[in-house]
Design a binder for these strands. Structure first.
Lengths: 126, 126
DNA sequence: CTAACTGTATTATATCAGTAGTACGGTTGT
DNA sequence: ACAACCGTACTACTGATATAATACAGTTAG
């Protein structure tokens, strides 16, 4: 079963349905979710997260259009990812996350050394 | 005059007025904009960026509330920042940018070494 | 079989971001 | 003084996001 333990929709981090899509992709990329894993039903997850079923459906629909999950009327939904897709997701998420930071930091005038020092410091911090 | 040469409102990067606020803070943090610099008028900037004057007004209003710019009815608007505020902005922007990346990358399961290697690679890329 | 669950679809409502148009009064250069 | 700017304010409209309340048909376990 795909986990939503550490997931809370955050204000100011874009639409909730996009956050759900990203979370599931992230779970797959991290290897915490494998091919064939079951997804929580729309109703169950909406109750768990305290949001509307339609918002969940919107997220699941996007994932199905991208071929990451599989849904059939009446039956449960499952994750359907190949190892190659998993690696691709990992690279896609990591690069898109870092690229925006790099461009922003360059714009502020930080040197590479300054940026990497700060990056390491933040990584160690918990 | 505060420059908007390298600024284009980007889809999927949040509200336009927030992007404008961040851009001006970024210009100040990078030292490309100093205390006393003039801002483009609402009408001029809206025409330049191809967006509505009200959207510019919303951004300028936020900056004024934060004490970063100064507006008086009828007169031009100017940047009003102390050296200390400039340093604070730089630290604030850099840390907030990197922190979200670090947490996202940790969630995907990257090690510190992998993350820093990717970070350096993206920094070199132009 | 059938009851309980599943995915899917529809309609209505509320809020927010952004656009569009207009208006008013203050400042400034000539 | 006066024209050309400026900041400010207001209303109305659109589209996207999210909620709410149903409804219907397919599946699956007891």
């Amino acid at each position: 079963m795909v986990s939503f333990d550490s997931f809370k929709p955050t204000d100011g981090a874009g639409p909730i349905y996009v956050q759900i899509v990203r979370h599931i992709k992230s779970e797959i990329a991290a290897g915490r979710t494998e091919n064939g894993d079951e997804l929580p039903s729309r109703r169950v997850l909406s109750a768990l997260l305290g949001i509307n079923p339609n918002t969940i459906q919107k997220a699941y629909r996007i994932l199905e259009d991208e071929g990451i999950i599989n849904s059939h009327a009446g039956a449960k939904s499952y994750v359907t990812v190949s190892p190659e897709l998993m690696e691709a997701l990992k690279a896609e998420l990591a690069e898109s996350e870092l690229l925006s930071s790099v461009t922003a930091l360059k714009k502020v005038g930080l040197t590479k050394a300054e940026a990497m020092e700060l990056f390491e410091k933040l990584w160690e911090r918990r």
